[in-house]
Design a protein around this nucleic acid. Structure first.
Lengths: 252, 252
DNA sequence: GCCTTTAACTGGTATCTACCAAATTCCGCG
DNA sequence: CGCGGAATTTGGTAGATACCAGTTAAAGGC
């Protein structure tokens, strides 16, 4: 049973009502107040139980649908979706990714410098070849063991100097309000070169997962171009795919 | 300049108005009627140009925002997002994936049989060990060359018999209205075993991209468990990542 | 001339209302 | 008792309206 407390919603708050309601429902789902498969109260019930309009209730439900927490069936009701594991790769940087997996992130620097873009970097970052970029190359560790080599290139305009990046590139971009909200990643299986093998302490010819990521701002401007090489024996990449049109589902 | 033809919208049509409008705008963007960066007419303008309410216009725009075609700025306007390539892996089966890449899909069967699930198959498909499953194993080809080995397992309840699957597994599932709408994929780099090397005509120890996919219905029921081995030298996997909260973007 | 203020845009949230369409429930007929 | 069909309940779409909140550009004052 879902218990919605009318008094917890405030139209004076800065956050919109529909997000407040969404949070409320999300928390109750997380805290186990409602079992999976169980139905939510109908939109009309919710609406006048909480004293907000049905349209607003629907908006709240829609955000939760998009997160995959609920599923709707026309004519039947709105149900709590079965617990699903979150894909690890939700536009998280390496540090966040590792923490999600319960591992201790670490790194040591290979290179941190300013310079000019190579032709293909200029191309993918939509720069002219005289606009400076910053380069960050690190060996990334998980629980003290080398896991990946990461080489990031960022247009200098988005970061003051290379020293702004201490632990996390994304944290530094966040401060400048230049955190990417969208990314395109390319994954490929390959073999370790001699240099990579040495840095990752694996034999030459070991399996390597190469990930190339481009990060974009909301307006589409590219901010990040990162090429990584992950140890194939220690790392797997989880991703979620959906249909574009998310229509109401069926349920027996 | 965007030209919206009022007469093309019909409230009699089966598809809702907001989707009709979204299609209309989407087509004009694709056909290059409007340049990237350019602003759409304001919601109010659109609204009374087409003769539909602003709420409906907003719904149309929202679906295009989610597809990444538009970006909105509070107080400023709605803009065409810069052209972005579509991620190939949009819950497409192998055949559709290959056609997207401009390659001719093909396959030859290794196995097509009914049986009982192994313990880990039963686990991931949420079956008991006495519920029958169908197995499909194929070598997948692109333009006549072997590209991947694909082994799919589907609970028998979702397909009549193994003969229902001719070319495409997804087409067969579609007919029974059991097409997955959501999938979780796990990618890992690895090396070719002797058996794989023979089937894919690569040397033993070549780079292999292993993809494990679980497909789910809208209600969360698992319908598909597929393990594939792709040639690392011929295949790369493209994926898109987003922030959960998609808020309006900034633009200079 | 420049800077500040103000007014006129823009999208963002929220209301009430009406009706359509899919599922389910209930009831009466055979 | 079983089945079919009507009534009810659920979500889905669409409208008109009001006001709030950022942005931008024009109007005003210095």
């Amino acid at each position: 049973m879902l218990t919605i407390v009318k008094e917890q919603l405030s139209s004076l708050s800065a956050t919109p009502l529909y997000l407040q309601l969404a949070d409320m429902i999300r928390n109750q789902i997380r805290d186990g107040g409602i079992r999976t498969g169980e139905a939510l109260p109908s939109e009309r019930e919710l609406s006048d139980a909480v004293g907000i309009s049905r349209v607003t209730v629907r908006r709240a439900i829609e955000t939760l649908l998009r997160e995959g927490l609920l599923s709707r069936r026309h004519g039947s009701g709105t149900y709590i979706a079965p617990r699903i594991e979150q894909p690890a790769a939700l536009l998280a940087g390496f540090s966040a990714d590792m923490r999600n997996r319960g591992l201790m992130p670490g790194s040591h620097w290979l290179d941190r410098s300013a310079g000019l873009p190579t032709p293909d970097e200029a191309m993918t970052l939509a720069l002219s070849i005289d606009q400076p970029v910053l380069r960050f190359a690190r060996v990334r560790m998980a629980d003290g063991e080398p896991l990946a080599i990461e080489r990031a290139v960022v247009p200098a305009q988005f970061l003051g100097s290379v020293d702004d990046v201490q632990d996390s590139l994304y944290a530094a971009l966040d401060l400048r309000e230049a955190r990417p909200v969208r990314g395109l990643q390319r994954l490929q299986a390959s073999l370790a070169t001699a240099a990579e093998a040495r840095l990752l302490s694996v034999p030459v010819g070991a399996a390597i997962l190469r990930i190339e990521r481009r990060g974009f701002l909301a307006n589409g401007m590219p901010v990040e171009f990162t090429r990584s090489a992950y140890r194939g024996d220690r790392y797997d990449f989880i991703t979620e795919v959906r249909e574009l049109r998310q229509e109401p589902g069926r349920q027996p």
